[in-house]
Computed example of a mutant assay.
Amino acid sequence: MATGKINVSVDNIFPLIKKFLYSDHEIFLRELISNATDATLKLKHLTNIGETDVEYGNPVIDIKVDKENKKIHVIDQGIGMTKEEVEKYINEVAFSGAEEFLDKYKDSAKDSGIIGHFGLGFYSAFMVAHKVEIITKSYKDEPAAHWTCSGTTEFTLEDADKQDRGTEIILHINEDDEEFLEENRIEELLVKYNKFMPIPIRFGTKEETLPLPDDAPEDAKPETKTVDNIINNPDPAWTKQPTDLEDKDYKDFYRELYPMQFEEPLFHIHLNVDYPFNLTGILYFPKMSQDMNM
């Protein structure tokens, strides 16, 4: 087992992360899922170009809440990391801008661009957790690694017995942030920030009612089955070609976006621009009613 100190020359970086990264601590989940998505898409790219012969399969991102033990797990089946990569990307690169961060933001409490500017996305976990663990196994044929940090510049890094490719982030939630141990709160954040992420996000299971066959008797009761609770739509309409969509598809997607909007849209425009920049999207024009607040 290795022990060491994260490569940063200031000891008060974690209090600043907890206080200044974002005004809303709920952003941590968006950042961790974005990282998990990136790791999965990197693996997809490597398999597409023939850089690796591992099977990409049908990966998902799992979110698990352990309320009893006050933990949240974010698990992906992406590219993973070797022990050396954990050292490089977690312990060094993330803090390469630490001094500049301190100089620029020590007197400013709200700046939504800090994480993106300094590569601190993973460390947003410490806004809600007093300890964070990473258990990760690379797509390469190398041992898995287990990194642990308790909100100081000290960490431990050792081998792990993880057999499956990918990364698991374990957050030990602060007492002040136990709202995030409520499943309905987590589901709310997943829908709010990750509704159209390109990798399926699984949050437990749900019961689904099966349709009755046409010849079912009148008093027949529909059966239910337990299925994965996939939060997001990884293949939204705007990512498809207009020739592959019918009018019903556009209306269904509008309903998905605005379930409380009872009127169908007046019309829509499917945007697919290549020059001078790349832009895809769907622009909906809602019907105006007399009681609509302009």
Rank of each mutant, 00 (worst) to 15 (best):
K240W: 08
D215S: 11
V227W: 08
D228F: 07
P198I: 08
D235M: 10
P222H: 06
D228Q: 12
T243F: 09
A237T: 13
F253T: 06
F196C: 07
P211N: 05
P236E: 06
E246L: 06
M260F: 11
P222N: 08
P236W: 03
P213R: 11
V191N: 11
A237C: 13
D219K: 12
I199F: 04
E223L: 13
F253H: 09
N194V: 08
I231F: 02
T226W: 03
T243R: 14
R202K: 14
T226E: 15
I199P: 12
Y250N: 04
V227Y: 09
K206Y: 08
D235S: 14
P259E: 09
M260S: 12
K195A: 15
Q241G: 10
P259M: 08
E256A: 12
L212Q: 04
G204Y: 09
Y254C: 01
K221C: 00
R255M: 07
D235Q: 13
I230K: 01
I231M: 04
Y258T: 11
I230R: 01
L212D: 03
E208W: 09
R202P: 07
K195L: 15
Y250S: 02
A220E: 03
K248A: 10
D252F: 13
I231Q: 01
I199K: 02
D214V: 10
D219Y: 12
V191K: 15
D228L: 10
T205K: 15
K248W: 00
E207C: 01
R255C: 06
P213C: 11
P259L: 07
K221R: 13
N229R: 02
T239L: 13
P259T: 06
P213N: 10
E246K: 15
E207H: 09
K240D: 05
E256F: 15
T209N: 09
A216N: 04
T243W: 05
I230A: 01
D249A: 04
F203P: 04
L210W: 02
R255H: 14
T226M: 06
V191L: 13
K221V: 13
P236T: 14
V191H: 12
T205F: 07
D247H: 11
W238Q: 05
I230H: 03
F253Y: 13
Y193P: 01
T224H: 01
Y250W: 03
W238C: 04
T226A: 03
M260P: 00
M197S: 15
D249Y: 02
M197E: 15
K192G: 00
D215G: 05
N232K: 02
D214W: 00
E256K: 14
F253D: 07
D215Y: 13
L245R: 02
D252R: 15
Y193G: 03
A237D: 08
E208P: 00
T226K: 15
A220H: 08
Y254W: 06
E218A: 14
I201E: 02
D214L: 09
P211G: 05
K251T: 10
V227H: 09
P242Y: 07
I201R: 01
D215N: 15
T243D: 14
K195T: 13
V191W: 07
E256N: 13
R255F: 06
E256D: 14
D247W: 00
E256T: 14
E208I: 05
P222Y: 03
T226P: 02
D214P: 00
I199D: 04
D244M: 10
D252W: 11
P211L: 03
V227T: 12
L212H: 01
V227E: 08
K206H: 10
D252I: 11
M260N: 14
P234E: 04
Q241S: 15
